Simulated scan of single mutants.
Amino acid sequence: MVLAWFMAENWSGDQREEHHKQPPEFVELGTLYKLTRVEHYKVDQLNPSNDELLNELKKNRGYSYEDEITCSKECLQDYENKLKMFFEEHLHTDEEIRLVLEGSGYFDVRDVNDSWIRIKVEPGDLLIIPKGIYHRFTLDTNNFIRAKRLFVGEPVWTPHNRPADHMECRKEYLSQIKSF
């Protein structure tokens, strides 16, 4: 079961810690979707190519390109700078689709009220982060994740750091989230 919670507003210290509010405020998956439009699915991480749900999502949503990324000190070139870059608040013009194969980490997303929700991802978690939402990623204290990245067509890697409210994808996202 994926865990999500509202982050403490004025946290300090290591970004890889949980940073719960006190007392913790957990977010159920249905509420997460209502507040952010982030989708979560559970997939067979040991055999993703034969997972019916994943194959159905790929077919229905047009995910035609995939690769893998491993984030660890040993595997990621320029590790420290990449982690800082991943943790900068940004958005993309396309969905961000990640399937965790090994390890764990956190995706932080801004909800409709501009509060941070932290989503813990572990093997088998597939997240679909909508285009236009402000978000960021960090490893947890295990310092390791291996994930499959899926794309519609050729991969687009460009992050647009906040503020990017002028972008069409951001305007579309805000329109969708407010109409729910």
Rank of each mutant, 00 (worst) to 15 (best):
L76I: 03
L76E: 05
Q77S: 12
Y79L: 08
E80N: 12
E80M: 04
K84W: 04
K84F: 02
K84C: 04
E89C: 02
L91A: 04
H92W: 11
H92K: 08
D94E: 12
D94M: 06
D94R: 09
E95H: 04
E95Y: 05
E96R: 01
E96H: 03
E96G: 02
L99W: 00
L99H: 00
L99V: 00
E102T: 03
E102S: 06
E102C: 05
G105R: 01
G105N: 05
G105M: 02
Y106A: 10
F107N: 02
D108L: 07
D111P: 04
V112Y: 07
V112R: 11
N113Y: 13
N113D: 15
N113F: 14
N113R: 07
D114I: 01
D114L: 04
S115T: 11
S115F: 14
I117Y: 04
I117F: 05
I117D: 06
I119W: 13
I119A: 13
I119N: 12
K120D: 09
V121S: 10
L126W: 10
L127Y: 05
L127F: 09
L127E: 07
I128N: 06
I128E: 11
P130R: 02
G132N: 02
H135P: 04
F137W: 08
F137L: 05
L139N: 11
D140I: 05
T141A: 12
T141W: 10
N142D: 15
N142Y: 13
N143P: 08
F144N: 06
F144Y: 15
R146Y: 06
R146D: 07
A147T: 03
K148C: 09
R149E: 07
R149L: 09
F151N: 08
V152D: 07
V152F: 07
V152H: 10
G153V: 13
G153Q: 11
E154D: 15
T158I: 15
P159A: 13
D165G: 07
H166K: 15
M167N: 06
E168F: 00
E168T: 02
E168M: 01
C169A: 14
K171H: 06
L174E: 14
S175T: 10
S175F: 11
S175G: 06
S175N: 12
Q176A: 13
Q176E: 15
Q176W: 09
I177C: 10
K178F: 09
K178Y: 12
